[in-house]
């Protein structure tokens, strides 16, 4: 019962944070410097990892599919399977997991530290709302950067699959055929579905991370606990909501 109450309380706190932050949306142009800093941080922190991870996942996926298809004579459809799997599921989810690890954890650690060391109090006493100064640039930055990260993930994953199809002897599929079937099946709608999913995941991660960070109480030990809580809550939320978004988009 206590866990349910705490979960509902956390969700309520996060919703209130979002609503308060949205109130300051008109002041976004004034936050452009901080928005730029956040975009740079999020891109730098996550893009290389997303590309490497997606390349490896695309490669492994092509290997697995190629192995299963080798006696069925349908090797040319590897591209469609890899392409769709990456666009509809693996790309958005893996990007979100990377965002949790690299961006969400950093946001919680920074905001929790600011809260513990009273920088948030200092902002409030200066009549600078933390939602406007701290949360709005982060939420906007993730909304802008998530489609770029996700598209990067798609392309790197497809490339990983193509390399495997070319170099693994038992698959032996020309990359042009791989990409032809891939483009046949990966429609604009499928791409949009993947990008919408990723956008929801990214926003959720930053909102959860900010909410947990700004509600940290105690000392340095609690900063660590908040980061752990933020990472766990974000991953569970992403995987949980993934089912419902998938169902809604099918």
């Amino acid at each position: 019962m206590k866990v349910i109450t705490q979960t509902l309380d956390s969700i309520g706190t996060a919703v209130v944070l979002v609503l308060r932050t949205l109130r300051y949306l008109p002041s976004l142009p004034r936050q452009r410097q901080r928005l730029g800093e956040q975009l740079l941080f999020m891109g730098n922190a996550t893009l290389p990892l997303v590309l490497i991870l997606s390349f490896c996942i695309g490669a492994v996926l092509a290997l697995q599919v190629g192995f299963s298809f080798q006696n069925l004579g349908v090797n040319r459809y590897i591209g469609s399977v890899v392409g769709l799997a990456l666009v509809r599921e693996l790309g958005p989810v893996m990007t979100a997991i990377m965002v949790v690890g690299r961006i969400g954890s950093a946001i919680t650690a920074e905001l929790a530290s600011m809260k513990i060391y009273r920088e948030v109090d200092a902002l409030q006493t200066m009549n600078i709302p933390p939602e406007r100064f701290l949360v709005l640039p982060r939420i906007t930055a993730i909304a802008l950067i998530m489609p770029i990260l996700t598209m990067g993930s798609f392309v790197a994953g497809w490339a990983g699959g193509a390399v495997v199809c070319e170099v693994v002897p038992f698959i032996d599929l020309d990359y042009r055929i791989y990409f032809r079937t891939l483009t046949e099946f990966v429609t604009t709608d499928a791409l949009m579905d993947g990008l919408i999913k990723a956008e929801v995941f990214g926003l959720s991660v930053v909102i959860i991370a900010s909410s947990i960070g700004l509600n940290t109480r105690g000392g340095p030990r609690e900063i660590g606990q908040s980061v752990t809580r933020s990472v766990v809550a974000s991953i569970i939320f992403v995987l949980f909501i993934n089912y419902f978004i998938t169902k809604a988009l099918l």
Partner: peptide, 28 residues
């Protein structure tokens, strides 16, 4: 206009001293 000097200063650690001072007039 009310202001407080916190016990530990509560300076913004990610900003220089200059930016700490300039924050209030810039934001307002």
């Amino acid at each position: 206009v009310t202001a407080i000097v916190f016990q530990d200063g509560a300076l913004f650690n990610s900003m220089s001293v200059y930016d700490n001072l300039a924050l209030y007039p810039r934001e307002h």
